[in-house]
């Protein structure tokens, strides 16, 4: 596997430097650390701070979702590794505008431990912190064990809703409620054709047979829940839809937001082919699509694969989703109710 890299151990910091150079209107380091990052835009006093974060290797996640209408700060770890508490704490202090801070991040052992330690430290400083763990990956645990599920590309929608709520100057409890509601509404399944390779090893993390793919993968190059034979794009979407519909129990007239996400190495052309079938399946169920994102939103280094997320919308979530936002990976001028 060949990559554009210098010393592997510098990869994350170098990528962040490259991001600061590229997106100076959106992000800047907090106190000079490239691993604790704030939105450039001014944040009003009394606004709930939204802090997100996680390991590197998911670019443009998570730093692309920092800005007005999105998160206020992001803590970045090593590749696929949670940021340590000190960095999360730096973000927390920076994001705090007197109204407390909401943490939104994926449900992983490492992240939970590090963010919880940071929350304890912040609490000791008098900053109230609430936490919403994202857990949209429905393949990763059974329906009745939602709390065990991991957070994947659905993150993006949860960040958006939390950011919109905070931009509307809602209080901490309300922001938390809405972020939790957004997470509950998100359903993701990922599939991978080929594993990714870490900067450090530059070898595929695991091997998938010539004719196989992994069904139910996360965004860390992990194997999926099952290994199955590769099928056509349409059949893959069908399998994903069957699983999501079984969980989401959509009814005719329901509305969803869609994210068709590349895990890194899969190009947009293929994502669009997936979206075509997805739309047909949704139409057949009379599910309306409110809006669609297609592209590289939450990647797993160079993994060849894709994920589909459906967020079931009600009026409240729709309104928040339609608010404007401006992160470098999601810039949207907003949509007025029609």
């Amino acid at each position: 596997i060949k990559k554009f890299l210098n010393s592997p151990k510098d990869a994350v910091n170098e990528a962040l430097e490259g991001a600061f150079a590229a997106f100076p209107d959106h992000i800047e380091p907090i106190d000079g650390s490239p691993r604790a990052i704030r939105a450039r835009a001014a944040k009003p006093a009394g606004k709930v701070g939204v802090v997100i974060g996680g390991g590197a290797g998911h670019e443009p996640s998570f730093l692309g979702f920092v800005g007005p209408g999105l998160a206020d700060a992001v803590a970045v770890g090593n590749v696929f590794a949670s940021p340590p508490p000190d960095r999360v704490l730096a973000c927390t202090r920076d994001a705090h505008r007197g109204a407390g801070v909401l943490y939104v991040y994926g449900n992983y052992t490492g992240d939970v431990m590090n963010f919880d330690m940071a929350a304890d430290l912040a609490g000791a400083e008098g900053i109230e912190v609430r936490t919403v763990l994202t857990s949209d990956d429905i393949a990763s645990a059974a329906h009745d064990d939602r709390a065990a599920r991991r957070g994947t590309a659905g993150n993006v929608f949860v960040f958006k809703i939390a950011g919109a709520a905070s931009a509307r100057m809602y209080g901490l409890a309300e922001c938390e409620r809405l972020a939790r509601k957004a997470n509950d509404a998100c359903h993701t399944i990922g599939v991978a054709m080929e594993s990714c390779s870490m900067p450090d090893t530059q070898r595929p993390s695991f091997k998938i047979g010539e004719d196989d793919m992994e069904f139910g993968v996360g965004v860390h190059g992990e194997p999926g829940v099952t290994r199955v034979p590769i099928e056509s794009a349409d059949r893959i979407v069908d399998q994903i839809c069957d699983r999501i519909f079984a969980e989401m129990q959509p009814r005719p007239g329901d509305r969803v937001a869609v994210l068709v996400n590349s895990l890194g190495g899969t190009p947009m052309m293929e994502l669009l082919i997936l979206n075509r079938r997805l739309r047909k399946r949704l139409e057949a169920r009379e599910i309306a699509v409110h809006s669609t994102l297609v592209g590289h939103y939450c990647t797993s280094l160079d993994m060849i694969g894709a994920s589909i997320t459906l967020m079931k919308l009600d009026d409240e979530l729709t309104g928040l989703l339609d608010d404007p936002c401006d992160g470098f990976a999601w810039s949207f001028s907003g949509r007025r109710p029609s």
Binding site: P83, P84, P85, N114
Partner: peptide
């Protein structure tokens, strides 16, 4: 802890 974060850090 400061170096790795991750699961093993804590």
């Amino acid at each position: 802890l400061a170096e790795v974060g991750a699961t093993v850090g804590p």
